[in-house]
Amino acid sequence: MIASENRGRVLRRLFRRPLTVIGLFLILANIVMVLFAPVLSPYNPEEMHLKDRHSPPSMKYLLGTDFYGRDILSRIIHGSRISFTLGLSVVAGGLLFGTTLGLVAGYFGGRVDSLLMRVTDIFLAFPQMVFAMAIMSVRGQGFGNVVLALTLTGWTAFARLVRAEALSLRDLEFVQAVQSLGARTPRILFRHLLPNLMAPIIVQATMGMATPILTEAALTFLGIGIPPNVPSWGGMLSVDRDFMETAWWSVTFPGLAIACTVLGFNLFGDGLRDALDPKLRA
C-alpha cells in the first residue's frame, strides 16, 4: 500500500508530467460525458432529422448528422456510456478472476502455479479478437455477452501480472512473519500480499480499460457486439462506413472519440506506472 508520506511524493511525480495531466483530463472529460449525457447532448441521440440527413458540421449540428439525420455529437456523448461501463465491467471481472488466480498461483508456487499458468497459456493461444468474436457469434449481440467475451479473453493479463509479483513477495520476511503467527491462507493472500501489489494492479487496471473499449468498438462495428439500437461508437462507424466520401464527419468523429478515450487511459496509466515505480523510468 502507498504509505501516506509517500503519497504526496507519488502525486507530485504524477502531475509533474504534462502528458499524464492530459490523460487524466481526457478520462475526466469522459466521466463527465458518461454522468451528464442527457444534459450535455444538444439533441435526443435517437431523434431522426430526416430533412438534415448527412448534414455537415454547422452551428446547428456541431459535428454534423449521420445517415438517418441523427446528431453525431449527441450520439457520441451517449455512446461514451457503453464504452465506459463496458471497460469498467471487464476490468472488474479481470480483477476479480485474474487477481485471485494470480495470487493463488504466485503464493503457492510449484504444481498449483504451473497448472494455473498452463490454463492461462491455453487462453492466450487464441488471438483475443478471434476468441471474442467466436463467443459473440454463438451467444449473440448484447452488452452482457460482450462483457462475458472480453472478460474470458482478458483476465489472463491480470493473472500473469499478479502471479509474477506475488511470486517475488512470498519469500519475504513479512510474509514469513504472518505465516508463523498462524494467519490463515486467505488472510495472508488478501490482507497482506494484495495490498503490496496495489501499485502494479492499479496501473494494469487503468491501462486495462483500453483493450475492452477498442475490442468492443470493433465487435460492434462488425455487427456482433452492442445491438444497433443502442448509441455506441463502434455502431456509429458501422452505420456510416459506406458514405464516407460524402460525409467524412460521420466516420471521423466517432473514431476520434474512441481514440481520445483510449489515449486518455494509456497516457494516464503510463504516467501512473512511472510515478508509482520510478525504477522503470530511465
Binding site: 483500453a210 477498442l214 468498438a217 470493433a218 462495428f221 463502434g234 462507424l237 462506413r241 464516407m244 466516420v251 471521423t252 473514431g255 474512441i258 481514440a259 481520445c260 483510449v262 489515449l263 494509456n266 497516457l267 503510463d270
Partner: peptide, 14 residues
C-alpha cells in the same frame, strides 16, 4: 501511445 489508441479498423476507414 497514439498508435495503440486508435482502432485499426478506423485507421483503415480513414
Amino acid at each position: 501511445l497514439l498508435g495503440v489508441s486508435m482502432p485499426s479498423f478506423w485507421i483503415g476507414l480513414l
